[in-house]
Design a binder for these strands. Structure first.
Lengths: 240, 240
DNA sequence: CAGTGGTCTAGACCACCCT
DNA sequence: GGGTGGTCTAGACCACTGG
């Protein structure tokens, strides 16, 4: 039944049909949708094709299939949000992001760093500090800490511009597996205020990232202090 | 080939095999994985079964399929984070979240509200203000604004405890479609400080949510001020 | 037990990409 | 043209749920 007209796939039509029934309220959250064999008859397609459409809706969060029972309409969860955090979205209106490498070097892990990166105190740690500037001026200062890996030189440009997860991956030759991301409220301390050309005490967002390898070993820690008047974080529920 | 042993599905085994090859570095980002027909031969399964496995890996972000070219290993994007925001994760260690309804009523939309909710100034708006308390004490104050819908009474308990998106859905009889979520840095003003039993000027997180219906009409606005010393937001990259 | 979704087959034709 | 992934079929058996 792929015949003649309709350039759009059958499974897609079916999915859109059901989606429309859900959005219009004809099918309400908790309702069962027709069984796969019923849909196959209705739409004159094979069951595997129905399954493809149903799987699409499930992936998009509109329905949930339960073996032996049926497929049920769900409310897309609006408390599950997707947050894209790249340095580019530190920019507000401004189009250009500049990065200034303030400091880079190898240090010995102090107590705090050794805790964060789960290494012994004294371990050699690659540290770098950067200043991020938009058109309006400084937006954030960022400190990054990676266990020092010998024989893996990082280029200055990488240190300046690479996104933190990418930098970590480059440094360790490992596929990083997880990014633990934390946002907290803070105010500018003296040193930060000077770098960010703002007053001490200005509200600030503190964004902390810890990258883990697949073996759950932390392989990178980053802490970014952002001027609250020049930066907000945004997220949106399901990005279909 | 579903025979005898192996309680785990063939497509799942195949997916795990490939995943392991990716995580071990045998397959690196950018590499092509074997074609579907090759995999079908290798694993002695039908091509549809291979496709199911490949689709699973694609859904999980490990590979990307491109028609006419092949399927390629991708780096799971670590700058795409999933943030679960329910009032329960306002709790730190504490187990009990209490909510106190401070104020509720119908008001006329002022300039700010009419802008946020895209309604004419003066439109009747249901407003409520709540205080959220954990074991340690107050954590956040939350103001919620919904266009007033007559004939849809909300119970006090709903107003107290319903998550904001759910509350909006209940109020409008609409399936809400999108949640625009914004986090910014702030400090406690006098009124907030009093309610939160903290000093004026304490760092705070401001969480703003605007819920949209499927027709892109805003149908709810919420603004929550959280004590920075008692609340942080966390997110994590792909939640498989 | 009947009905549901989950897995699987062995084919087929298509759209697309590259050479 | 030859290879790739995308769509689709018409069956089959399985695992699970419920009455």
């Amino acid at each position: 039944m792929k015949s003649v007209s309709s350039f759009i796939p059958a499974y897609y039509r079916l999915a859109e049909d059901l989606k429309q029934k859900i959005e219009s309220g004809e099918l309400k959250p908790g309702d069962v949708i027709p069984s796969e064999s019923q849909l196959a008859k209705q739409y004159q397609v094979s069951r595997m094709t129905v399954r493809q459409g149903v799987a699409l809706l499930a992936k998009e969060g509109f329905i949930e299939s339960i073996q032996g029972k049926g497929s049920f309409v769900t409310v897309p969860r609006m408390d599950t949000l997707v947050l894209r955090f790249s340095e580019n979205n530190l920019l507000g209106e401004s189009k250009t992001l500049q990065v200034k490498l303030l400091d880079v070097g190898v240090i010995a892990a102090d107590r705090k760093i050794s805790a964060k990166l789960a290494v012994s105190p004294g371990t050699r740690i690659l540290k770098m500090k950067r200043l991020l500037l938009a058109d309006e001026g400084p937006v954030a200062v960022d400190s990054r800490f990676l266990p020092y890996v010998k024989g893996v030189p990082l280029l200055e440009r990488e240190m300046e511009y690479a996104a933190f997860p990418d930098l970590v991956a480059r440094n360790t030759n490992l596929v990083s597996a997880r990014n633990n991301f934390k946002v907290s409220a803070s105010i500018l301390l003296k040193e930060e205020a000077e770098l960010l050309e703002a007053k001490v005490g200005l509200p600030a967002l503190c964004v902390e990232q810890i990258i883990y390898a697949s073996n759950d070993q932390p392989i990178g820690w980053s802490k970014m202090i952002c001027r609250g008047d020049r930066f907000t974080l945004t997220a949106v529920s399901h990005p279909f």
